[in-house]
Amino acid sequence: MTSFAIVIPARFASTRYPGKPLAMLRGASGQARSLIERSWRAACEVKGAAGVFVATDDDGIADAVRAFGGQVVMTPSTCRNGTERCAATLSQLPEVDVVVNLQGDAPLTPAWIIPDLVAALAAAPHAAMATAALRTSATTYAHLARDAAEGRVGGTTVVTAQDGRALYFSKRLLPYLPDALEAKHERMRLHLGLYAYRPDALRWYAAQQPSSLEDLEGLEQLRFLEGAAPIQVVTHDPVGWDCIELNNPQDVPAIEAILAARGLD
């Protein structure tokens, strides 16, 4: 068995949504829980993990995590993104084969995708890391398209080679889909905020400077691609609900509606 630990990077100073990890989301019964607690609860549903750790440099987030029973790893404020924050936890984690990064703004991620991702990385010795994507449903595509039309940065899309190797990730909707194309959503894949890294790949990443495309797109995984470190993408069919990330305050009602529809408190 491939051993793995789950790390949830969380920072207070989000450009688009300051204080986002502590934003409150109401569940099916009306009970409000913070975004970071909901992400932690989603991670705790995963079977076989050596532990679930929230990585942060913010005392307020750390206090909130300890209050609901989570484990915290304090990381330097100089970490520029979640992958660097995961790298900074390595000395404080159990010794594992794989470190999984579950982004703290993705509480709707299905738990069963994580073991699949770990297994995919173990089966792809050429890859530095693996990540997950979903074929978009009609409603997810509509959400992404609405964000784009209204000038908001929403989810991230990914395009791959036939063998699943990532070609590019973007906050734009990729690939280009002609207006006349029917069932556009079937041609697009939503990247999930989920990564599985080999520890050595994390150390390599932390030793590199941010890449030019990473800076332009604001997508940390592009540092791997520009450094010729292959990324394996595991694509799944839609899971029955829209895996919307909390990127903007406008996303809160949509996420709360999905929590209510799924009966999640």
Rank of each mutant, 00 (worst) to 15 (best):
G104H: 13
D58I: 01
H185K: 00
V158F: 02
I244V: 15
L102P: 05
V73M: 14
T56E: 06
D57T: 06
Q250N: 09
L246M: 14
V54Y: 03
G70W: 08
V52H: 09
P249A: 10
D63N: 11
A260K: 11
D97P: 09
A55Y: 02
A254M: 07
P76W: 10
S212L: 07
I244P: 00
W40Y: 15
S29D: 11
R187S: 14
P210N: 09
A28Q: 13
A122W: 03
G193L: 09
G48E: 06
D265Y: 00
T78F: 06
E150H: 12
T2H: 05
R189F: 13
R198K: 10
V98C: 15
Y17A: 13
E150C: 11
I255S: 06
A10N: 08
D97G: 11
L22D: 04
P110L: 04
S3P: 12
Y205K: 09
S39G: 08
A180C: 13
A148T: 10
T139Q: 12
P238I: 08
I244Y: 04
M129E: 10
E182S: 12
F4K: 02
L225E: 01
L144F: 06
F12V: 01
L246R: 11
D251R: 04
S3D: 13
T2W: 00
A207Q: 12
L264S: 03
Q250G: 09
E186A: 14
I6D: 12
P178Q: 06
I36H: 05
M24V: 02
M24R: 07
A229F: 08
L93H: 08
I255L: 10
Q103M: 12
P175Q: 05
L194T: 03
A127I: 01
N81M: 11
H143R: 12
V52N: 12
I258A: 07
L117P: 05
E182D: 12
A257Y: 03
D242R: 08
A142E: 13
Q232N: 11
A127C: 05
D200F: 07
P21L: 12
A180R: 14
P18D: 02
A49T: 15
Q71G: 00
A148L: 11
N247M: 13
D59G: 11
E84Y: 06
L22E: 01
